[in-house]
Design a protein around this nucleic acid. Structure first.
Lengths: 190, 190
DNA sequence: TCCAATTCCTAGCGTTGCTAGATTTAAAAG
DNA sequence: CTTTTAAATCTAGCAACGCTAGGAATTGGA
């Protein structure tokens, strides 16, 4: 009984180590540097061990993404909480969203561009993703007016996502970023 | 002299065949099906021939993307031209943009998500890309007001891009798409 | 008809994600 | 404490990827 629980604990530790290694590698060198061989070396086990924890590389990336949802949600919550008024809240939350994406581009990609085997628009959305979305919702609620709140939230989100991805891939000049963000925020401000 | 020009013509034909094969394969089976071996088989030459035309697979994808810019620009031009008034123009151009992305997802990815070795925010932007961007600019000009036109255009573009990419990767429910687009259009309408 | 130059292909390198089968390790039974 | 059995882990390898070196074949001009 106790030996079994000890083993389970060790397994859980190793699983966390895999996700942490993937996250660190992706952050420092990008996802193309995150190979199964490299991950195995990092946790000091052989390659097949990874597959006893995760179905494949995509599942590992999904696990990193889920961690990212928690971080993003926390960042959005604190941004909105410290805003002086609803108008400032939109600007601050937008800034926090963009800052997260720019500081952790690899994590952001795993969350919103790469891994597709995560439940999004369905019932069993990861809790922290729902938390982040709810925070966006509350932020734009004052401007929803006649429109459906969820729809407005998704559209605002899409605007942020578009700005972030187009800029990071070099499609938009970085210099003008703040002005673009201001335009978007203004269009979604009370 | 004539034999040389004949050879040059044959080479140009083969180059076009490569891009066409890549485009067709990407459209029907996605970019992951576009391998250099598959492309070589398609044009009935061996693999290394590809590298006498293009620096690598990325360059082939970039060539497909450039073709896409032309198509998109044409679609946007005709959408704006047939619009009854400036307000309708915004809606029609937005709809045309989204329709293009949804009907040719692989091409759209090559244009705006994958290939990065294309000049975007610089002087030597592909002509057709500039054409498409100019069309977007003219469409949103009535709402630019005090803001810089280029900035507003880029922000509107980002909104469209965000909607398209988030929906295509399953992050947004497809059913509510029209309503989200309407919200965006309304925010950028005169 | 022979030579030279260009064009093209065969073969292979290093890397990827992933897996089958042997091997070691550890727990349970005697 | 030894033996047996089961679980955990590793070694080795597969198929596919992008890409390239070096030799074979084709072509045009002398």
């Amino acid at each position: 009984m106790s030996t079994q629980s000890r083993r389970e604990r060790a397994r859980a530790d190793r699983e966390r180590a895999i996700v942490a290694a993937a996250r660190d590698l992706a952050l420092t060198e990008g996802w193309e540097a995150v190979t199964t061989r490299r991950l195995a070396a990092e946790i000091e086990y052989s390659q097949p061990v990874l597959y006893s924890h995760f179905k494949g590389k995509d599942a590992i990336m999904a696990a990193v993404a889920v961690e990212g949802f928690a971080e993003l949600a926390t960042a959005l919550v604190s941004a909105r909480a410290s805003a002086a008024d609803p108008r400032q809240a939109v600007a601050d939350v937008a800034a926090a969203y963009v800052a997260f994406a720019q500081e952790r581009p690899a994590i952001y990609d795993a969350m919103f561009t790469l891994a597709v085997d995560l439940p999004f628009a369905s019932q069993d959305v990861p809790t922290d993703l729902a938390r982040g979305f709810a925070e966006l919702s509350e932020t734009v609620r004052p401007v929803a007016a006649g429109d459906d709140l969820e729809t407005v939230t998704e559209t605002f989100w899409a605007g942020l996502h578009g700005l972030v991805t187009l800029m990071r891939s070099g499609r938009l000049r970085r210099a003008d970023h703040d002005r673009r963000l201001a335009v978007l925020v203004q269009r979604f401000s009370p």
